[in-house]
Amino acid sequence: MDINTKNLKKNAFRVTKVRGYTASRVRIPGGHLNAEILEKVADIARKYGNGTVHITSRQGFEIPGIPFELIPKINEELQPIIDMLEINQPVRGEGYSASGTRNIVACIGNRVCPYACYDTTAFAKRIEKAVFPHDLHFKIALTGCPNDCAKVRMHDFGIMGMTMPVYDPSRCVSCGACEKYCRRKSVQAIEMVNERPVRNEEKCIGCGECVLNCPTRAWTRGEGADKRYRLTLFGRTGKRNPRLGEDFIKWVDEDSIIKIILNTYDYVAKYIDKDAPGGKEHIGYIVDRTGFEEYKKWALKGVNLPPGAVVYNPLYWKGIKYTEMTL
């Protein structure tokens, strides 16, 4: 058997521990799909695989037990799924054309969740359209609110929904719900002064608890259609120095986030370790090498941040450094 494993991986198939058998990796940007796709995945698993499907940690499907020789057939069968999900594809019928930039993960978002500040899947799909296909190892995740159910701080780019609370004193009944929920569930950014809430703008993380719990619409979401986010950078899992992403910009808009991610591809192309195993290096390690200021220069090139956006400076990451550990 002669298989080019490099091409195989790029085509979103895996070298598995079972010799001769591969697994097909189906990306579902934003993690929300038409149930018809599930049926198609099931069909492929039953007809060509071993009848099982793994729900991956990045919200895709992995269909194992497929003989290598069936790859062209699988790519044919994947085509309707790729079409339905509107995945960018340079050549029809040949499956996925890259796997480096991973599936874009999203929590369930405001299609279902009452806490979410935006439609996470819609934004995930918009980012997918802008960045895929690409061979560079980028991990992007979106979450609807600061609860961070999608654990976006463990990704290169973490996108967290924010609500800009706007207060209308003429509608306030001084019930104290905003203060209570902010104090008990969030960051204690509201204090009652003269029977009315005063919001500490610096402290506020935009979780939206005040809006959610206001009985009179005295608090509303000021961002409207112009959604705002917290962007965190270069969290990661892995062997050497796993760590949480750090805040880069808060109250940032969608256009700026997409531009920053695209700029980062240029930065990585320039600074990646050319000898990195498998051509794969977490972006954070590159930034550790060049220094954050160099990265920031690249990241913000041509970015017009919206009014109100706050850029954090400087950025320091923590995490566990196994290379420096002594017991």
Binding site: N110, A116, T163, G208, L212, R217, T220, R221, E223, G224
Partner: peptide, 15 residues
């Protein structure tokens, strides 16, 4: 109808 002023994001408030 106040667009986007409902309790939840992307919902309207009618008052």
């Amino acid at each position: 109808r106040f667009p986007y002023q409902g309790e939840h994001s992307d919902t309207d408030s009618i008052r």
